[in-house]
Amino acid sequence: MKALTIRQPWSGAIAHQSKRVENRTWKLPDKYRGARILIHAGAEPDKSATVHGPNLDVYGAFIAVARITGYHYDTGNDPCCSEWAFQGTYHWTLDDVRALPEPIPAKGRLGFWTPTDDALNAARAQLEANR
């Protein structure tokens, strides 16, 4: 399973709110369509974001698992697919999001990356325990 680092509060909104679109400037590589990924809350917040709510203050940790179902590009000419979507970006669509009960500390990276075996095992254990 790969991981994707997303700054707060966006990662928290995926894990704990209804955000099911990840805005990216690059299109989703085909090999990740349908893939389950670990959502990693980056070490730094997006200071321009205005999302509020609980569970948005975890940094530098895995906080959820999600499936990427596909993507499309938003030119701004069509109705938006989500209140979370930004114009002029690729919208990666997510489903089957499961928040982890406890954050798993880890250093993030750019793009898709491979978590350590310890982090993967900890995430799987938490998901199994909370079925």
Rank of each mutant, 00 (worst) to 15 (best):
L38A: 02
Y73M: 07
A66F: 00
G60H: 01
V97I: 14
G111I: 09
N121L: 15
K2V: 09
R33S: 09
H91W: 07
R24E: 04
Y90L: 05
H72I: 06
K31P: 07
Q87F: 00
S82Q: 10
Q17F: 01
V21T: 12
Y32D: 09
W92I: 06
T89W: 14
A119C: 11
V97H: 09
T25L: 07
Y73Q: 10
Y59P: 04
L127P: 14
G60W: 05
R24A: 00
R124P: 00
D78H: 13
I37M: 06
W26C: 07
T114N: 14
D96S: 12
R7D: 01
K47W: 01
I68E: 06
Y90P: 13
L100I: 07
G53I: 09
P45H: 00
F86T: 00
A15H: 06
R33W: 04
K107S: 02
P115F: 13
I37V: 12
G60D: 04
H40E: 00
A61H: 02
F112C: 09
A123I: 05
A129M: 11
S18M: 04
R67K: 15
V21G: 10
A35Q: 10
Q8H: 08
W84I: 06
G108K: 14
R98Q: 10
M1G: 08
A41F: 07
I6T: 07
A64V: 01
L110W: 13
V51Y: 13
P9K: 03
Q87L: 05
R67E: 14
W26N: 11
T69P: 08
L110D: 08
P45F: 03
R131K: 11
V21K: 14
D30V: 08
G76F: 02
V51W: 08
A123E: 12
I104C: 07
R98A: 11
I6F: 11
A41K: 00
N77W: 11
A3K: 13
K27R: 15
N55G: 03
A43G: 05
I63Y: 13
D78I: 02
H16L: 02
D74M: 11
A49E: 03
W92E: 05
F62K: 02
D30K: 10
V51F: 02
V97A: 00
L56I: 08
D117P: 13
L28V: 04
D118H: 14
T114Q: 15
M1F: 09
R98I: 06
R98G: 07
R67H: 05
G111D: 08
T25E: 08
R109C: 11
V65D: 14
Y71L: 06
